[in-house]
Deep mutational scan, measured.
Amino acid sequence: WEITFERNGKRITVRTTDHRLLELFEKLWRNGADERELERLAEEINR
Rank of each mutant, 00 (worst) to 15 (best):
W1D: 08
W1A: 08
W1I: 11
W1G: 08
W1R: 09
E2D: 07
E2I: 11
E2W: 06
E2P: 02
E2H: 07
E2G: 06
E2M: 05
I3S: 07
I3T: 08
I3G: 04
I3W: 12
I3Y: 14
I3Q: 12
I3H: 13
I3D: 01
T4A: 06
T4C: 06
T4K: 03
T4V: 13
T4G: 02
T4W: 04
T4R: 03
F5A: 02
F5N: 00
F5R: 04
F5V: 15
F5M: 04
F5L: 11
E6I: 12
E6A: 03
E6Y: 08
E6H: 07
E6R: 02
E6F: 08
E6N: 04
R7W: 06
R7Y: 08
R7A: 12
R7P: 01
R7Q: 06
R7V: 15
N8E: 09
N8A: 06
N8C: 05
N8F: 03
N8S: 05
N8P: 02
N8T: 04
G9N: 08
G9I: 00
G9L: 02
G9C: 04
K10Y: 14
K10V: 13
K10G: 02
K10E: 04
K10L: 11
K10C: 04
K10I: 13
K10Q: 09
K10W: 12
R11T: 13
R11K: 14
R11F: 15
R11W: 12
R11C: 09
I12A: 01
I12H: 05
I12T: 03
I12V: 07
I12G: 00
I12F: 13
T13L: 05
T13E: 04
T13N: 04
T13M: 05
T13S: 06
V14S: 00
V14A: 01
V14Y: 03
R15H: 09
R15I: 12
R15Y: 11
R15S: 08
R15N: 09
R15W: 05
T16F: 07
T16E: 01
T16N: 05
T16L: 05
T16V: 08
T16R: 02
T16K: 02
T16I: 08
T16H: 10
T17F: 13
T17Y: 11
T17W: 10
T17L: 09
T17E: 10
D18I: 04
D18R: 03
D18Q: 06
D18T: 04
D18F: 04
D18E: 08
D18K: 04
D18H: 06
H19D: 07
H19V: 14
H19K: 15
R20D: 11
R20H: 12
R20Y: 11
R20M: 10
L21F: 07
L21Y: 08
L21K: 11
L21M: 14
L22I: 13
L22G: 02
L22D: 01
L22Y: 05
L22F: 11
L22E: 01
L22K: 07
L22M: 11
E23T: 10
E23G: 07
E23W: 08
E23P: 02
E23D: 12
E23R: 10
E23I: 12
E23M: 13
E23Y: 08
L24P: 01
L24R: 10
L24H: 12
L24M: 15
L24T: 09
L24E: 11
L24K: 09
L24C: 06
F25K: 00
F25V: 03
F25I: 07
F25E: 00
F25P: 00
F25L: 04
E26Y: 15
E26L: 15
E26G: 04
E26Q: 11
E26A: 09
E26V: 14
E26R: 05
K27Q: 13
K27V: 13
K27H: 14
K27E: 13
K27C: 07
K27M: 14
K27F: 14
K27Y: 14
K27S: 12
L28P: 00
L28I: 09
L28R: 09
W29G: 03
W29S: 03
W29E: 02
W29I: 10
W29D: 02
W29H: 04
W29F: 11
R30E: 14
R30L: 14
R30D: 11
R30W: 13
R30T: 12
N31G: 13
N31T: 08
N31Q: 14
G32A: 04
G32K: 05
G32M: 06
G32Q: 06
G32S: 05
G32T: 03
G32F: 07
A33W: 08
A33G: 11
A33M: 10
A33F: 07
A33D: 04
A33K: 04
D34W: 10
D34S: 14
D34M: 14
D34Q: 05
D34K: 03
E35I: 15
E35G: 05
E35P: 07
R36L: 15
R36Q: 14
R36Y: 15
R36T: 14
R36K: 15
R36M: 14
R36A: 15
E37R: 05
E37Y: 13
E37K: 05
E37G: 02
E37I: 11
E37M: 11
E37C: 10
E37W: 07
L38C: 01
L38N: 00
L38A: 01
L38F: 04
L38Q: 01
L38S: 01
L38H: 00
L38W: 06
E39F: 07
E39G: 03
E39M: 11
E39Y: 06
E39W: 05
R40N: 12
R40I: 13
R40D: 11
R40L: 14
R40V: 11
R40G: 09
R40P: 01
R40E: 13
R40F: 09
R40T: 12
L41W: 09
L41G: 00
L41M: 11
L41T: 03
L41Y: 07
L41E: 02
L41V: 10
L41R: 01
L41N: 01
A42C: 06
A42M: 09
A42K: 02
A42S: 04
A42D: 01
A42N: 02
A42Y: 07
E43L: 05
E43Q: 09
E43K: 07
E43Y: 08
E43V: 06
E43T: 05
E43W: 06
E43H: 08
E44H: 11
E44T: 07
E44K: 07
E44N: 04
E44S: 10
E44Q: 09
E44A: 10
E44D: 10
E44G: 02
I45Y: 03
I45C: 03
I45N: 01
I45A: 04
I45V: 04
N46T: 04
N46H: 06
N46V: 06
R47Y: 10
R47V: 13
R47L: 14
R47Q: 15
R47N: 15
R47H: 13
R47K: 15
R47S: 15
